[in-house]
């Protein structure tokens, strides 16, 4: 749970203040995958670093697993993957995981067992004996995931876990996130890529310019507005003038592709009446689908509107 977090960076030489967070509040429920979505520079990493006690907030408070931050008890139960992670490059993965395990106070035998399991799980089995120095970005990311899971955490915090990965790597991370949730863990991850968030997150917060713009389940976020109703019908065997009449009747736009006629009616049109008339004319309706604002539209709208402070205030949760 995060309440009204603010962070102002001071750049000592330019004497310029950067308001990276301007009152960020949200709540993550136990056992859910929470996607923290926002464009670059939105304040995601700043929020996460504050939560990990790497930086002190200028204002506001946060609680993790019931502990008011900063809290070692909370860190005990949290796993953290930093943004663009970098680790001691003179270590091998087993050595890195051993170090992580020691810091969690895990005994030697369990450290070893857990490290072996995680190395296989993140697919670094073949790079076991290699120094991290030789790791690609994607391998570093995997090593980072493994070290974040050494303590079998209740909450996993991942800052841009999919960045720098190829499509297969992204999918593997998505699968891992889902698997962690299915094990009962809470996953909080950030991303600037919509589809990565959309495909796994149970709940999403859209952040831009240091503020939460909106928050909800993906379907909640997109189901609120119907933009239009799309209708597809077969018009084979209909005379051209009949089709033309059909088209003329509707208030919407239409397009004919071979024997199919696609009609887009505005959201407020009387769809039933229109369908009945079309049916009477001999057209066969293939599909009727309401089109909602996509998460992308929503995302773009919120990123764009964050300038106006009124919209920003409204979006604050």
């Amino acid at each position: 749970m995060v309440t009204d977090l603010t962070k102002t960076y001071r750049t000592p030489f330019r004497r310029r203040k950067v308001e990276a967070l301007r009152g960020v509040s949200f709540r993550v429920a136990r056992g859910e995958i929470f996607g923290f979505l926002g464009p670059n520079g939105a304040g995601k990493t700043t929020t996460i670093r504050t939560l990990m006690s790497l930086i002190k907030p200028t204002g506001g408070t946060a609680q993790i697993l019931g502990h008011v931050l900063p809290s070692r008890a909370a860190r005990m139960r949290v796993g953290f993957l930093p943004e663009q992670p970098y680790f001691y490059d003179y270590l091998t993965v087993p050595e890195l995981l051993d170090l992580a395990g020691r810091l969690f106070g895990i005994d030697r035998a369990t450290r070893k067992k857990r490290a072996d399991f995680l190395i296989d799980r993140v697919g670094l089995g073949r790079a076991r004996n290699q120094n991290l120095k030789k790791f690609s970005k994607g391998m570093m990311q995997r090593a980072g995931l493994a070290q974040a899971l050494m303590n079998d955490p209740d909450l996993v915090v991942l800052d841009e876990p999919m960045s720098g990965l190829d499509p297969i790597g992204r999918k593997e991370v998505r699968d891992l996130i889902t698997e962690l949730r299915d094990q009962g863990k809470t996953v909080f991850f950030s991303s600037h890529i919509l589809t990565d968030v959309e495909s796994v997150a149970d709940r999403v917060a859209i952040v831009a310019r240091g503020q939460i713009q909106t928050e909800g389940t993906p379907s909640e976020l997109v189901a609120t507005t119907t933009i239009s109703v799309d209708i597809t019908m077969r018009v084979a065997g209909l005379a051209d003038d009949k089709v033309a009449a059909l088209v003329a009747r509707g208030p919407g736009k239409s397009r004919r592709v071979a024997d199919e006629l696609h009609v887009v009616l505005p959201a407020d049109a009387d769809v039933d009446a229109w369908l009945a008339a079309a049916h009477a004319d001999g057209a066969k309706v293939v599909s009727v689908s309401p089109r909602h604002e996509s998460l992308e539209d929503l995302f773009l709208r919120h990123i764009g509107s964050a300038d106006s402070s009124a919209a920003a205030m409204e979006g604050r949760v």
Partner: peptide, 29 residues
């Protein structure tokens, strides 16, 4: 592969690691 190791309690003895006891500190240092 999603079943086994994650269920182990990760071998953390909370007192050793958390208590801020000198033993825990020495281990981390």
């Amino acid at each position: 592969m999603s079943n086994s190791a994650s269920k182990s309690s990760a071998g953390i003895s909370p007192s050793a690691a958390l208590g801020g006891g000198p033993l825990g500190s020495i281990g981390r240092v």
